[in-house]
């Protein structure tokens, strides 16, 4: 050893000093960090901005229309001479189309997820799964015209008294659109169930169906429920299909054969119509938009909570 302990310590200190290059590097890292933060904040601020606009525009509306009237009046006629501002007919319309859509999409989506995850041979799964996901990529306007020009005439043959614009056709078509969402998310949840659990069940003499029903589905339940809730949120927010095929008649009914109007369709109607900006009539869309936003927000929060809990299970 040629070095005394002192000179070794000196070398060490020298090496620890930051040079110009190191400072540049630090600045560089700081800049990149800032850029990434900015990117992340863009979406946060956009969301906040949207909420702010909704609230700010809705406030003058609620100064003229009481919250009680808004929530309880059974009529929605802001664009007529005899004005009523009860959101219930729009909520009923949204509920109706969403319920029809979910009644179709939940069972079909879940069954196809079970098939893909538990029954399909590897090769079938490799083809079917992406194919299903392509369905989700079809523009909703295509679904809308499909509902109006194809599904409705078909339904008219079997459903008596079906109006040309109706909740049933729009709802069913929306259901078809949502199937891939449910099937894909549920399938992820089912597939994530460790195969050791399936083996355990088989080794106890369970059949394939029993393994699926009693082990895999219960273990994946929160993921499946989360997919249902996300689908509900999607159905509530869906616009094009209902605007095209469900009609623009805000009546308070739960009869799916009739023309109705959903919250989203109403917003489209006013936004594209000739209602002057700044009027009470125009502000209705912000009040409706706020309700819609709160509804989907609640759905998404619930789904997130459930998914989080579900992640913990196999930690």
């Amino acid at each position: 050893m040629g070095l005394t302990s002192r000179s070794a310590a000196e070398i060490y200190t020298v090496r620890l000093q930051r040079g110009v290059a190191a400072r540049w590097r630090e600045w560089g890292e700081l800049a990149i960090q800032g850029l990434l933060l900015f990117a992340a904040m863009v979406s946060v601020f956009t969301t906040l901005g949207i909420v702010a606009v909704l609230v700010v525009e809705a406030i003058p509306f609620f100064q003229q229309v009481s919250l009680v009237e808004f929530l309880t009046d059974p009529q929605w006629t802001p664009l007529f001479a005899q004005k009523h501002f009860g959101i219930l007919p729009l909520v009923a319309g949204t509920f109706l189309t969403s319920a029809v859509a979910l009644a179709l999409a939940m069972p079909v989506g879940l069954l196809s997820a079970i098939y893909l995850s538990e029954y399909a041979p590897v090769r079938v799964r490799a083809i079917l799964k992406p194919a299903l996901e392509v369905l989700a990529g079809i523009p909703t306007v295509v679904y809308g015209y499909f509902a109006l020009l194809f599904v409705t005439p078909l339904l008219k043959r079997v459903v008596p008294d079906l109006e040309t614009f109706n909740a049933l056709s729009a709802g069913l078509t929306m259901g078809v659109m949502i199937i891939p969402l449910i099937s894909s998310l549920s399938e992820d949840a089912l597939y994530a169930v460790p195969s050791s659990l399936r083996e355990a069940a088989y080794a106890l003499g369970a059949t394939r169906l029993e393994v699926a029903l009693r082990v895999v589905i219960p273990a994946a339940l929160s993921g499946i429920v989360a997919s249902f809730i996300l689908a509900a949120s999607r159905a509530v927010g869906e616009t094009m299909i209902v605007a095209i095929a469900a009609g623009q008649r805000p009546i308070l009914t739960l009869d799916p054969r009739r023309a109705i109007e959903t919250m989203t369709a109403y917003i489209v109607q006013v936004s594209l119509g000739d209602t002057p900006h700044g009027t009470l009539e125009f502000r209705t869309i912000f009040a409706v938009g706020l309700v819609l936003f709160l509804l989907t927000l609640v759905f998404n929060l619930i789904a997130l909570r459930i998914i989080e809990r579900y992640r913990e299970v196999y930690r």
Partner: peptide, 8 residues
């Protein structure tokens, strides 16, 4: 089995 695999 090798790894304990109780059902959840």
């Amino acid at each position: 089995f090798q790894k304990p695999n109780p059902f959840p």
